[in-house]
């Protein structure tokens, strides 16, 4: 069953009389109970897409439905059914943790007790600070509180806009585990993120760049599309090495990746020679999902 349907959605912003196309005729579907990620660099249009789906802004073109309701005409129904966690922490900083949660529960005509089972995992971690004002919480706790508030009315769809941006590696991992548990409760989750490595944690991913969707698939399928051999190269002087790689015609693509540079080539012999000349270490590596995305984005730019 399809929960979120996006069909030919476009959004323009006019800035200093020039128009910026934030979303360019994008379409996709999200199934019931799916953990769906929209991945893309800053400025790709992720937030605009989420704000259209949560009925906060209107798209210029196209149709979108959430839980079967149209985002333009039936937005009132949608607002009853969704939980939205914006990228920026936007709860009342001068109310305490408990007051914030209580407030959002009561405006949905429910109470903390009624839906406690849903948020228990998350809320238990911040419960010791329930009398602290939200503004005084640490970044990770703010995020947990925001998620609790977005969940307190037991929404059927959860929209999380860059929930892991600016969060440390451990909290990010914890956060994704929380999302997995929520998914088990049958909640459809749409999450946006600029971190490509998080893609492998989702059921399906849409890669968004400059307002266009480059590919939508499961992480496994995206990985399997990567047919080329991927080389990793390393030497003492990494930056001159990268410049040298990029100046060679037989190198298709090269980019820094951790302590190595990843390289795609059509001429393995030349590459081996090159490595020798530069006294560099060369080896074949398995592509990660990030390599797949970089390849996709590169191809798209080349087109």
């Amino acid at each position: 069953m399809i929960t979120v349907r996006v069909n030919n959605i476009s959004k323009k912003y006019s800035q200093n009389k020039t128009e910026v196309l934030a979303l360019d005729k994008i379409s996709f579907d999200v199934n019931q109970g799916e953990l769906f990620a929209v991945i893309g660099p800053d400025g790709a249009g992720k937030t605009s897409l989420f704000r259209i789906l949560t009925s906060l802004i209107l798209a210029e073109e196209g149709i979108a439905t959430v839980d079967g309701f149209d985002v333009i005409t039936q937005y009132k129904e949608i607002r009853k059914r969704i939980g939205y966690m914006p990228g920026k922490f936007s709860l009342y900083q001068d109310l305490t943790v408990e007051e914030n949660l209580n407030f959002f529960a009561s405006i949905f005509h429910t109470s903390i007790e009624e839906n406690y089972d849903l948020i228990k995992d998350i809320y238990d971690q911040i419960a010791p600070f329930k009398d602290r004002r939200a503004g005084k919480l640490s970044g990770g706790m703010k995020q947990k509180l925001a998620l609790s508030c977005a969940l307190i009315h037991r929404p059927s769809i959860l929209f999380l806009d860059e929930p892991t941006t600016g969060v440390d590696a451990i909290s990010r991992k914890e956060f994704w585990e929380m999302l997995k548990r929520l998914k088990q409760q049958g909640i459809t989750i749409l999450v946006s993120t600029p971190y490509m490595d998080e893609a492998s944690l989702c059921d399906r991913v849409a890669l968004l760049q400059k307002g266009k969707i480059l590919s939508i698939d499961t992480p496994e399928n995206i990985m399997s599309q990567f047919k080329n051999k991927l080389w990793a190269i390393k030497s003492e002087e990494m930056y001159p090495l990268l410049l040298a790689l990029r100046s060679n015609a037989f190198i298709e693509q090269s980019y820094p990746f951790g302590e190595y540079h990843h390289v795609l080539t059509n001429n393995e012999k030349e590459l081996a020679l090159f490595a020798q000349n530069y006294n560099a270490e060369l080896k074949i590596v398995d592509p990660t999902i990030e390599d797949c995305f970089i390849a996709l984005m590169q191809n798209h730019v080349n087109l």
Partner: peptide, 13 residues
């Protein structure tokens, strides 16, 4: 400014 109005706007208020 803080963005709380947006959080209110996605509710049925």
């Amino acid at each position: 400014e803080i963005g709380t109005i947006e959080q209110i706007n996605v509710t049925p208020i």
